[in-house]
């Protein structure tokens, strides 16, 4: 277990295909939690507010990506 952990932090893991897109979710969740923790005076409202902001960011970025992809297909 310790060897696996040491290897994990020393060597890069192999990422393929759709895994890169899925890695958008944890980073957006981190940004959402930090932002809402700094802004919200009530800590109990943080989980729901963070989840809502995270979904908004991820969906927004996917919409932008799809629009740019369609524009690329139309004009490339």
């Amino acid at each position: 277990m310790l060897n696996w952990l040491a290897t994990l932090f020393l060597d890069p893991i192999t990422l393929t295909g759709f895994q890169r897109a899925l890695l958008l979710i944890p980073i957006c969740l981190s940004i959402s939690i930090v932002y809402k923790t700094l802004k919200n005076p009530d800590l109990r409202s943080i989980p729901l507010a963070s989840l809502g902001l995270c979904v908004t960011i991820v969906v927004g970025m996917w919409v932008v990506a799809v629009v740019l992809w369609i524009l690329y297909l139309l004009f490339a």
Partner: peptide, 21 residues
Amino acid sequence: GILCATVTLTFLIGIAIGGVT
């Protein structure tokens, strides 16, 4: 505590994905 856990986890995920380099 919430801020510490969140930023620490984000940093550790980055190191786990890309390695210490």
